[in-house]
Every structure is written in C-alpha cells, then in structure tokens.
C-alpha cells in the first residue's frame, strides 16, 4: 500500500488535514452519541434500582404503594438535621394514607467527621429504619454502624432504632447505655454510636412536630 505521496501546497495541506480531523470528530461523536442513547435506559434503570434498594432498606417495599421517587419535597439546608446543603424528602403512602417520611440527616460529631444517615419515620412517629450512607469512622472499630461491616449479621447494631418512638421512648432512653439510655454499643468505640443515636433522636424530634405539614405540603396534585 505505498502510493507516492502527492505534493500539496500549504493551504491545500491545511484544508486536507482539517477535513480529515473533522471527519474523525464527526464519526466518533456519532459513535459516542449512539452508545449514549442506546445505554441510557439501562443506566437510568439501574441508578433508579440502586436508589430504591437503599430506600427499601429503611422502609420495606410492602409498607407503601405510591411512586416514592416522584412524591418528594426539596428540603432547604436544615440545621436541626445537621444538613448544610439542600436534600430530598420522600413521602411514602399506602392507599392514599401517609405511611412514612424518608429523609437524610447528618451526625456532625462522629469520631472522624460527619456521618450521613437515611432515616424512615412512620406516620405513627416510630422509626421504621436507619441506614448509614456515608462515614469515615475507623475501619474495624467504629464502622459497625454500617450493617455490611457489622459482625452481628442477624441483628446489626443500626437496627435497634427500629420501632423506637417519642411516645414510648422518653428522651433519656435515646442515649447510649453508658450515658443512662437504652442503646447498646461496642466497647472501645462509643463516640461513633453516640453521634448516630443523637442524630436519630434529633431527626425524630424534627419530624414529629411537622409530620402533618410535610405530608400535606404541595400534594394537591
């Protein structure tokens, strides 16, 4: 394949290389956009599935029947929840009746910075579930707040919040056993569970006084 290279004048040469580069750009942009279009539904579906999986960990799918991901409220940065940025609150309903609120909260005083939580609180005020979504606690020491890292697989530490409610659990009972409350902890790592327990209690208090309002807001559609 050795064709003798033709002589080009400088402008012709410039035009030719520009044209070839242009063709390459068009071809590969077309390839990219085709792959993007083709894969988008699958990628969106799996992103959605991942979100739903996390939400269903704090609230079982059988406890609601509405489209959770569309029945939302945008929360402004809320100091009571430890949130310094806007977040999304999900409203679960069953048969049109309020079932639970799912929202994020942050424990600002973990052993190694902020601990991000996802909390579901039922319409009767009891905690449906709590999950840690982000933390930097010491691996092997404070990270048992994450069920995946908790050695007790049957009833991970974080599940002891399930079912707690302000009506049945007085304020002091929301503390660690060491601090006179009811929450168990692992010896040697108390800063982490204390921060989580406090954040969950704060979140329950926050939701309790504005539950009706949150369920009603903007849902006249």
């Amino acid at each position: 394949m050795t064709s003798t290279p033709r002589e080009y004048t400088a402008p012709a040469m410039a035009l030719r290389t520009a044209a070839i580069l242009f063709i390459f750009v068009i071809a590969f942009t077309a390839l990219l956009s085709a792959v993007y279009q083709w894969t988008r539904p699958a990628i969106e579906a799996s992103a959605l599935a991942e979100k739903m999986k996390l939400l269903n960990e704090v609230l079982p799918a059988s406890d609601y029947d509405n489209a959770l991901l569309t029945d939302t409220l945008s929360l402004p940065p809320t100091a009571e929840l430890g949130l310094t940025e806007a977040s999304t609150l999900y409203r679960a309903r069953k048969g049109g009746q309020p079932a639970a609120l799912i929202f994020e909260a942050v424990a600002p005083d973990g052993y190694a910075g902020r601990i991000r939580l996802l909390i579901a609180i039922r319409a009767d005020g009891s905690v449906a579930g709590v999950r840690v979504t982000q933390h930097k606690e010491t691996p092997g020491l404070g990270d048992y707040i994450e069920p995946k890292k908790d050695k007790n697989k049957a009833s991970p530490w974080i599940t002891q919040f399930n079912g707690l409610a302000l009506a049945t659990t007085p304020t002091k009972e929301w503390r660690l056993r060491k601090d006179g409350g009811h929450i168990e902890y692992h010896a040697g790592a108390t800063v982490t569970p204390r921060a989580v327990a406090r954040a969950v209690h704060q979140a329950v208090l926050w939701a309790d006084i504005r539950r009706e309002q949150l369920f009603a807001e903007g849902s006249a559609q």
Binding site: F24, V25, F28, T29, L31, L32, V35, Y36, W38, T39, R40, A42, I43, S46
Partner: peptide
Amino acid sequence: LIVAALVTVVDLLFNAQLH
C-alpha cells in the same frame, strides 16, 4: 479523540450491561 471516545464507550457499556 479515539482513546477518549473508547474510554467513554467502555464506561457506558459497562454501566449498562455489566452493572
């Protein structure tokens, strides 16, 4: 151009097909 496009294509395909 080719490398960047291919990396993006691999990224998208992996995400969609082998999640």
